[in-house]
């Protein structure tokens, strides 16, 4: 087993009657790319704020690198929380020099991270003159400064254009390939599906799902099927060992497959039973459906 990077135990954060976090346990191992998924207000930022020691928990504890948290452990964690926070009257380099001084990292690393986020040509522009996308990229640059072992990114693609989003995702993937552990909070399922190896789903401050992204998708493959003889199709589907549930929609059936079954096997089964389909679509947003189901399930 890889070594534990972050361990959260029974964490609570209450603001008066609002339970922003209501008992979360979590372990992040080295090399993982963990997506924290949840709707607005589910406690993602609060959880990250606690482990980054800017928010005091009401109860519970956490450990970085299997040791009690200290400011020096945070020097090994690069993080963006919610939105880029810099001194607007300083240029990119001076802002990064402050970060470098806090982390006790050489200034030579600054140009390097600016190259990685493609801001080198704006290194002497004041932060307040940056566009939102540039601010976001500077934040990522600051998080990367000093090659931290862990990167925490709270909605890093917030406010970026499609090209910017794609660039940032590619960058995150590259970083994770170098062995950096990444914790990414997002409410975009697509993003988590594309980038992450593991996922935790939060709702109302409670963890409602935890596992590999891969398993989540295979677990819950849903397929739309349609043929000229819908009653016959229904009978076929009911008899097939691969279908876990069949739901009749307006013009098609929505079939949920058991674990280990895929679209190809379904198609093969129908065809070998002497029937043909005129519509077959495997749900692209499986994670999204699963996510919505998780959220609507009464706990």
């Amino acid at each position: 087993m890889n070594k534990k990077i972050l361990t959260i135990s029974n964490l609570h954060k209450h603001y008066g009657r609002i339970k922003a976090i209501d008992g979360i346990d979590l372990v992040v191992h080295s090399g993982e790319v963990l997506g924290i998924l949840g709707p607005n207000g589910s406690g993602k930022t609060t959880t990250l704020g606690v482990v980054l020691s800017v928010i005091k928990p009401t109860a519970g504890s956490f450990k970085w690198f299997e040791a009690s948290p200290s400011p020096s452990s945070l020097c090994k964690v690069g993080a963006i929380l919610e939105r880029p926070l810099f001194y607007p009257y300083l240029d990119a380099v001076d802002n990064l020099k402050i970060i470098a001084d806090i982390r006790k990292v050489s200034y030579e690393a600054i140009d390097e991270v600016l190259v990685r986020v493609e801001l080198l040509d704006r290194k002497h522009s004041k932060f307040r003159t940056f566009s939102l996308g540039m601010k976001q990229r500077l934040a990522i640059a600051s998080a990367l400064l000093g090659n931290p072992e862990v990167l925490i990114l709270d909605e890093p693609t917030n406010g970026l254009d499609p090209q910017g989003i794609a660039e940032i995702r590619t960058l995150i993937q590259k970083i994770s390939q170098q062995g950096t552990t990444i914790i990414l909070a997002s409410h975009l399922l697509d993003e988590v599906q594309k980038i992450c190896s593991h996922v935790v789903v939060l709702n109302k401050g409670i963890k409602i799902y935890e596992g590999r992204v891969k398993d989540l998708i295979i677990d819950n493959l849903t397929v739309e099927v349609q043929s000229n003889d819908m009653p016959f199709l229904e009978a076929l589907l009911t008899n097939w060992e691969g279908s876990s549930s069949i739901e009749k929609k307006e013009t098609f059936y929505l079939v949920k497959l058991h674990k280990g079954y895929n679209t190809e096997q379904l198609n093969h089964y129908i065809f070998s039973s002497g029937h043909t389909l005129n519509h077959l679509a495997s749900g692209k947003n499986n994670l999204e459906q699963h996510f919505l189901e998780l959220l609507t399930q009464p706990k």
Partner: peptide, 9 residues
């Protein structure tokens, strides 16, 4: 907030 996150105690 950013100062503390970065590791300034």
């Amino acid at each position: 907030r950013q100062n503390i996150i970065t590791g300034l105690s």
